[in-house]
Design a binder for these strands. Structure first.
Lengths: 136, 136
DNA sequence: TTATTACCCTATCGATTTAATAGAGTAAGC
DNA sequence: GCTTACTCTATTAAATCGATAGGGTAATAA
């Protein structure tokens, strides 16, 4: 299940991408437009800024803005920052790999085999979509 | 993230499918072979039986067994029983649809658009795999 | 018929995660 | 120098997960 954090983050990014200019947008405006708790959104935007997806400007007329062009922001990046691993099990994760403590042999594990296919197909979707593709 | 319930369920089903005959297999044997807490596995197998995927036999020589041929058990069925919705958000779920309380219009929702693609590609994987495909 | 075996069911529990809230701090701009 | 708006820390309630305990019930073999 997609977390609200990711959902809100995607909506906020899409909203920023839909703004023609790159003028900073206030948190309050994004929160209001997307029906999101402002305080919760604050922490999400902060995460996105720390990861380098967003920039921020303080003071009057400040707010958040996209650093890169929407078409240069792949969904793989966004999803990994917001949601974490794309794979459904750590043992098939590219960026967050972990061995299962049960399961003596990955090669012969039925779950591994199936989840590898799911990861690949999901990854393909995220690779084929940039932030620009999400804007209506 | 895949729940342990689903993971264990898949392993148990695969183990049953790998048995040549259709003689009942005891819970304890499955639990031991797959490194699963026996009590936890009990509840999972019970779910699978209630859904019609497994049959059980009581008393001495009893246990669980597959009702259908592994090749006739699609992963879509198994995953929906064990994990629930295949979609990452309820608003793109085929079998567990729910409207988002935020989000006034699905057609123009960026999250909806993206998650629809993810659902379709994941669904295709599960449709192309039966239990028979998971057996090593 | 009786004892055994193994399925069946309910309840509980700690740990973790999630979503949200509160409140204070800090930097930029007019 | 005051307002504005981002930044950070801490706390919380609720939900979920994984696991465990313990007893009940039904079917089978002897």
């Amino acid at each position: 299940m997609l977390s609200k954090k990711t959902k809100y983050g995607l909506k906020a990014l899409t909203f920023l991408a839909s703004q023609k200019g790159r003028a900073p947008v206030q948190i309050s405006e994004i929160a209001k437009h997307e029906n999101i708790s402002q305080k919760f959104l604050e922490s999400i935007l902060l995460t996105l800024r720390k990861t380098g997806l967003l920039g921020s400007k303080k003071g009057k007329g400040g707010g958040y803005y996209l650093i890169k062009e929407p078409k240069d922001i792949p969904m793989t990046t966004v999803m990994r920052v917001l949601e974490g691993p794309i794979a459904m099990v750590p043992c098939v994760s590219l960026n967050f790999y972990e061995k299962c403590e049960d399961c003596p042999d990955e090669a012969s594990c039925s779950v591994h085999k199936l989840m590898l296919q799911v990861r690949d197909s999901t990854l393909e979707v995220f690779r084929n979509n940039t932030l620009a593709d999400l804007v209506p």
